[in-house]
Each structure stands twice: as C-alpha cells, then as structure tokens.
Lab assay of single mutants.
Amino acid sequence: MKVIFLKDVKGKGKKGEIKNVPDGYARNFLFKKGLAIEATPANLKELE
C-alpha cells in the first residue's frame, strides 16, 4: 500500500515521503497512530 508519511518513522520514512509499505503495517500501526495517510489521488494533490 502506498502511504504518505505525516511524521518521521525511524527506519521506514520521513515526513512528506511517499512509500510502499505492507497493508497490515499501514492499517494497524501507521494509520492508527496518525503517522501516515493512504496515498490516494486526492491526498497526493493536497500534498503538492
């Protein structure tokens, strides 16, 4: 799953980066803790 990092996550990504991460990791950790959001076309446009 492609995500946009909202905060730095040690060993995974830095704020503003767009990366592919495992689906479970994104849903169960990154999204729940507010560390990242899904890289949807709308979210990507908002980032620019």
Rank of each mutant, 00 (worst) to 15 (best):
T40W: 04
G34H: 09
E38T: 05
K12M: 15
I37L: 10
A42L: 11
G24D: 15
K12S: 13
N28D: 13
K33S: 09
L47S: 08
L6F: 03
F29L: 07
L6P: 00
G11N: 09
K32D: 06
K45L: 13
P41H: 11
L6E: 01
K10T: 10
D8G: 05
A39W: 12
E17F: 03
G11D: 08
G13T: 03
I18P: 01
F31P: 01
E38P: 14
E17M: 06
K10I: 12
I18G: 01
N28P: 00
V3R: 00
Y25W: 11
E48V: 12
K19E: 03
K45V: 10
K19N: 04
K2E: 10
L30A: 01
V3A: 01
A39L: 08
A39S: 04
V3F: 01
A36F: 00
P41L: 13
K2D: 10
L35D: 02
L47Q: 10
L44N: 05
D8H: 08
G16P: 00
E17G: 03
A42G: 12
E48H: 13
V21T: 03
K10S: 10
N20L: 15
K12T: 12
V21P: 00
V21A: 03
K12F: 15
M1Y: 06
T40K: 06
V3W: 02
K14F: 12
E38H: 07
N43I: 12
D8A: 08
G34Y: 08
G24E: 14
L44P: 04
V3K: 01
K33W: 15
R27E: 07
M1T: 13
K7S: 09
L47I: 12
T40P: 05
E46A: 15
K7Y: 14
N28Y: 14
L44G: 04
K7W: 11
L30H: 00
K19Q: 07
T40M: 05
V21L: 05
V9W: 05
G34L: 08
T40S: 10
K45T: 09
L44I: 12
V3D: 00
G13D: 02
K7V: 14
D8R: 07
Y25I: 07
M1F: 08
F29P: 01
G34M: 09
K12P: 01
K14L: 11
G16Y: 09
E46V: 14
F5W: 02
K7M: 12
L6V: 09
E48D: 11
K15Q: 10
K7L: 10
G11V: 01
V21K: 00
R27G: 02
L6S: 02
A39I: 06
K14H: 10
A36G: 03
L35E: 02
N43E: 06
K14I: 09
K32W: 08
K12Y: 15
I37V: 13
F5A: 01
L44M: 10
L30W: 02
K33N: 15
D23Q: 14
A36V: 05
E38N: 04
K2F: 15
N20M: 15
N28M: 11
G13W: 13
V9E: 01
N43Q: 08
D23P: 13
K15D: 02
V21N: 00
A42V: 10
K2Y: 15
A36P: 00
V21W: 02
E38F: 05
F29V: 13
T40F: 05
N20H: 14
E38A: 11
A26F: 11
F5G: 01
P41N: 09
G11F: 08
R27Q: 09
I37W: 05
G13M: 04
I37N: 02
I4Q: 03
K15A: 13
V9H: 04
R27K: 11
K32F: 07
K7R: 13
P22H: 09
V3I: 08
D8M: 06
G11P: 04
V21R: 00
F29G: 02
L44A: 06
K14E: 06
K45I: 11
P41F: 10
L30N: 00
N28G: 11
I37E: 04
V9P: 01
K33M: 15
K19Y: 07
L35N: 01
G11A: 06
D23I: 15
P41V: 12
A36E: 01
P22G: 08
A36H: 00
E17K: 03
F31N: 02
I37R: 08
I18W: 03
V3Q: 00
F29W: 11
V9Q: 01
Y25F: 10
D8K: 06
K33F: 15
K12I: 15
F5H: 00
M1H: 05
G16Q: 03
I37T: 06
D8P: 05
K14S: 09
I37M: 12
K15L: 07
K10M: 14
K19W: 08
M1E: 02
G16A: 03
I4W: 03
E17R: 03
K33P: 02
E48M: 14
Y25E: 05
